[in-house]
């Protein structure tokens, strides 16, 4: 058993244990409780629902790793969606040509990047607590979005937009493919790039990173800009899935993204964390809600259970680190 644990840690990393155990537990419990759980239908629904929460979680991930947080992700996604919608509307709405697609995406990505960059500059140059800066940014973006839309929906997009939201390539939903590409990008960014290295160093000690010659301000600005760009991608996917933009879409995902990241072993103080365990944690959360759905419960019960799962995992970590076997290992 001990040898197994050691091998597992060696090949997947120590932070993979919690999410994997949760994954197996969820599969076992629902597999036994609902006989139609282990079916293509379940995995189909997970595959379609995962990307929205997943992309927003990726947007949350980088700031969390620097020891910060980005509370404005959902409204940044909405606002980016609005920018794309505006491009399509000005190019003829439903009849907009395919060429407008590129401009719409660029407008969305640009908006996301701009909100992120503004947040990053505020955090890097004033040293205000990221919770506060992004919280007030959230309030501002929500207000801006509601002001622009007068609280209503924007809809009427060309039909190819629906393909992004609902189409499949080789049997895999397009949103899932986009999400997988983003996961891979973030994985490479964190493990192999200078920026990834720098942001983890900043997460555990910004001053020490600065003294070692890392450009900490640039890193912070880039981190929040990338977070904003990821929000924009999420915003486009949401627009395509609902075939409309509404300020407040996905608002309830905000704290779930933090929960998913912590569930995936991200250090709450920053500096340590990987993408893969977070990816597994996201699958667990989505399976949990799909499974409950199958059994006739609604999303709200799933939300509650997500919270319970989080508490159980964190409590198990505490107990494990306090127990005798693990303590000797640490020392």
């Amino acid at each position: 058993m001990k040898a197994f644990v050691r091998n597992f840690r060696a090949s997947f990393g120590p932070d993979m244990g919690g999410p994997m155990v949760a994954l197996v537990a969820v599969l076992l419990i629902f597999g036994l409780a609902a006989d139609n759980f282990l079916s293509m239908a379940t995995f189909g629904s997970v595959a379609f629902q995962l990307p929205e929460l997943g992309l927003l979680t990726l947007a949350m991930l980088l700031p969390l790793l620097t020891g910060g947080i980005n509370l404005s992700i959902t409204f940044a996604a909405n606002l980016s969606g609005l920018a794309a919608a505006w491009v399509w509307q000005t190019h003829g709405g439903v009849d907009a040509p395919t060429s407008a697609f590129l401009f719409a995406c660029l407008a969305a990505l640009g908006t996301g990047a701009a909100t992120g960059a503004l947040t990053g500059v505020a955090i890097a140059y004033t040293r205000a607590h990221p919770i506060l800066v992004t919280l007030s940014m959230m309030i501002f973006l929500r207000g801006l979005g509601e002001f622009l839309t007068r609280g209503g929906d924007i809809s009427g997009f060309p039909s190819y937009v629906g393909l992004i939201g609902h189409g499949s390539i080789f049997g895999l939903p397009v949103p899932l493919l986009i999400f997988l590409v983003c996961v891979a990008t973030w994985h490479v960014l964190l493990t192999r790039s200078k920026l990834g290295f720098g942001l983890l160093m900043i997460g555990s000690n910004l001053e020490a990173a600065h003294y070692s010659g890392l450009n900490t301000r640039k890193i912070v600005v880039l981190v929040y800009t990338l977070s904003g760009i990821m929000c924009a991608i999420a915003g486009i996917i949401m627009l395509a899935r609902f075939n409309s933009v509404r300020v407040g879409h996905g608002e309830s995902y905000l704290l779930i993204t933090v929960l998913a990241a912590f569930l995936g072993g991200i250090n709450p103080f920053g500096g340590f964390g990987r993408v893969l365990p977070v990816f597994v944690a996201l699958i667990v959360l989505q399976l949990l809600s799909s499974g409950l759905n199958l059994m006739g419960a609604n999303q709200h019960l799933a939300t509650a259970l997500w919270g319970v799962l989080m508490i159980v995992v964190m409590a198990a970590r505490t107990l494990a680190s306090n127990s005798h076997i693990f303590r000797r290992k640490k020392a």
Partner: peptide, 26 residues
């Protein structure tokens, strides 16, 4: 949760936020 289970306060209260709200709506 914060004292006995040593879950840091932001993680613990985000969890209870979901538990309270999810259960209430359910």
């Amino acid at each position: 949760l914060i004292y006995r289970l040593q879950i840091i306060s932001i993680v613990a209260t985000i969890s209870t936020f979901n538990v309270f709200f999810g259960l209430l709506m359910f």
